[in-house]
């Protein structure tokens, strides 16, 4: 029983980070109907970013300070990616944007493999651990969950309380109408794409504080993000966070009942079933 609680708590903490990554994917989909297949490698870039700025072989900054730099770079990267690979295919059939974002995936993985090889990296970093009754939590994971919640809160304030945030929501609702109202839709689309990749990069950076990684590591989290996004409803950021918690909890609890290698089978079967039965997500309305 104690074991179960410990796994559940651990799973939920990671679930916040999964949710953050998925939020990046779902934000982009919600605003411009594009599924960013470059999501995974961008998560990996976030990991390498923190490694570079905070690792002992890099600048040696505090990892959370490094995370701020990674976030800014993630935002810029996404905006550039929008103009290079996404803008021209926004009105083309879905296949075009799927492939153009995937082409970015290939470029990052290709260059990343050439530069960093695929041997695992590890950020030697620890925040000790936290004892809550019988449950022992790793400090880095608690911190990651807190930061994920903080970033989500900031995102919501941005989307609902600020001018550009409102403009993004208007563009997401109806691009033509927003443009008629004088909202520069292209800028807003680029900004939302940047926000999406920023969230992915932050999630990657947080994961790097407690797991080892290589340039291919983002792929796993990309697939998890798909599952989460579908759980929470495509295009729904709150749903993504809750979906992340569900997935994290599942990953914590399921291995106490069956071999851990069955977890992804359950995840993907669940993913397909939800797509079929309720494509708007468990939380999504009609």
């Amino acid at each position: 029983m104690e074991q179960l609680f410990a796994s559940l708590a651990d799973g939920l903490l990671i679930g916040f980070v999964y949710g953050l990554a998925a939020m990046g994917l779902t934000l982009i989909f919600g605003v411009m109907d594009v599924i960013n297949l470059g999501h995974g490698p961008i998560i990996a870039l976030g990991m390498f970013g923190v490694f570079f700025f905070a690792g002992s072989t890099g600048w040696g900054l505090n990892p959370y300070l490094a995370l701020v730099i990674v976030a800014v770079l993630g935002l810029i990267f996404g905006m550039i990616m929008y103009f290079v690979a996404v803008h021209r295919v926004l009105n083309a059939p879905h296949l075009s944007s799927l492939l153009s974002t995937f082409s970015v995936n290939m470029m990052i993985i290709g260059v990343g493999t050439a530069l960093f090889t695929t041997s695992p990296r590890n950020l030697e970093f620890s925040l000790g651990s936290l004892q809550l009754g019988p449950v022992n939590l790793l400090g880095t994971r608690v911190m990651a969950a807190l930061i994920a919640v903080l970033v989500t809160a900031v995102l919501y304030v941005f989307l609902y309380r600020t001018q550009p945030g409102k403009a993004i929501r208007a563009v997401a609702n109806n691009r033509d109408a927003a443009e008629l109202m004088g909202i520069p839709s292209t800028k807003m689309l680029a900004l939302s794409f940047g926000l999406g990749t920023m969230l992915a990069a932050i999630a990657g950076g947080l994961i790097a504080t407690f797991f080892s990684f290589n340039i291919l590591a983002g792929g796993v989290y990309e697939l998890k993000s798909f599952v989460i996004v579908v759980l929470g409803g495509l295009g729904n950021p709150t749903g993504a966070l809750i979906g992340g918690l569900i997935l994290g909890a599942m990953e914590g609890v399921v291995p106490t009942f069956m071999p851990v290698s069955w977890v992804p089978v359950i995840e993907f079967v669940l993913f397909v079933v939800i797509l079929l039965v309720r494509p708007t997500g468990l939380l999504g309305g009609r």
Binding site: S100, F102, M106, M107, I109, G110, T113, A114
Partner: peptide, 16 residues
Amino acid sequence: DLQLAIAGVLLLLIIL
């Protein structure tokens, strides 16, 4: 080492 990246650039150019 850059095989994948070059294929990616090619893909993007075709789509665009």
